[in-house]
């Protein structure tokens, strides 16, 4: 029983770690989509962030500099998206795809040029990464049954960036629903004319939304390569940006609900990797290919109607013209 309990806790623990990049990307997606800009470029920004974080940390030895550089690079990608979609009223899906392709190619080319390791970056030492933080009193709490274990395994011991992701969710909800900026942001995604006629710049609001999105994607990228992992690997974002976008839709463009959707995807990911090679009674061993496909199958099933009909921001995808 205690063993099962531990296994469950370890799975939840892994859920949190795997959900972190999804949560950060989903918050990024909520900001840009709520402002009316379709953001399939989450994937590209995540990948860019991951590469730049690993590369700069390798070159400077400082994960903080890596994190800052990742944020800058990801914001830069966001600004390309904004320049195409806001300033020049281009197609938002095409621009997003272009950014994803650009990120995929550039990270490999620059990676090979800099490190000559076939697109990977060298492994970082533990000082060069955001490591787990042991919380105060873990050893003391160990004496308390159950709670002590939960405290040690689930609450304590994550990297700073995991806690940042968890804090990002209420922060986003607060910004969106309680602040002037949030009110205008929601309005600009629903009816940009209303914002324009209130004397507020539609373009600047949307640019700011994309900048915020870029910051979150940069942190998510840094988490992948210098916190969760210890180097950058080709295509290491592996569709997480798209999954985060699906979570945004499941969450009906609301931070808290999107957070739950991210946890669900994280849990599926964690559970499938734990179940690999395990003989399940009656079913037997599930092929790994099927396991890996499960998050995507769930996405399709959920989108096909197991959740209520999502109501996207009314003006999403439509360039604003007077």
């Amino acid at each position: 029983m205690a063993d099962f309990m531990l296994q469950l806790l370890l799975t939840f623990d892994a859920t949190l770690r795997l959900a972190t990049p999804l949560i950060l990307c989903a918050m990024a997606g909520i900001f840009s989509e709520r402002s009316g800009i379709v953001d399939i470029s989450l994937e590209g920004k995540l990948l860019t962030g991951a590469f730049v974080a690993a590369a700069i940390t390798t070159l400077t030895g400082s994960p903080w500099l890596g994190l800052m550089a990742a944020i800058c690079a990801s914001v830069f990608m966001s600004m390309i998206h904004g320049f195409a979609c806001i300033t020049h009223r281009g197609d938002q899906v095409v621009s997003g795809l272009a950014i994803n392709i650009l990120a995929s190619g550039l990270t490999i080319i620059i990676g090979i040029a800099l490190f000559k390791k076939g697109g990977q970056t060298p492994a970082l030492s533990s000082d060069e990464r955001f490591r787990g933080i042991e919380w105060f009193g873990v050893n003391m709490m160990d004496n308390i049954p159950v709670i002590g274990t939960i405290y040690r395994q689930l609450i304590s011991g994550h990297s700073l960036l995991v806690y940042a992701a968890l804090l990002a969710v209420p922060l986003c909800a607060f910004i969106l629903y309680r602040t002037r900026f949030g009110l205008r942001l929601r309005a600009v995604g629903e009816k940009p004319e209303s914002v324009d006629s209130a004397g507020v710049s539609v373009a600047w609001l949307r640019y700011r939304a994309l900048i915020i999105g870029g910051v979150f994607c940069g942190i998510a990228g840094a988490y992948l390569s210098i916190s969760h992992g210890a180097n950058f690997v080709r295509e290491m974002s592996a569709g997480k940006g798209y999954i985060a976008l699906a979570a945004v839709i499941f969450g009906n463009w609301r931070p808290i609900k999107a957070f739950y959707a991210c946890l669900l995807f994280g849990f599926l990911d964690a559970a499938t990797s734990r179940l690999q090679g395990v003989d399940i009674p009656l079913i037997g061993e599930i092929p790994i290919q099927l396991m890996l496909a499960i998050p995507y199958i769930v996405t399709v099933l959920l989108l096909a109607g197991f959740i209520g009909r999502p109501t996207p921001p009314a003006a999403i995808g439509v360039p604003y013209e007077k």
Binding site: R178, R180, G182, L183, R184, A187, V195, A198, V200
Partner: peptide, 13 residues
């Protein structure tokens, strides 16, 4: 919310 939009009276609603 509609009436406040553009003249919110502060950075917090």
């Amino acid at each position: 919310e509609n009436v406040m939009l553009g003249s919110e009276g502060g950075s917090l609603l």
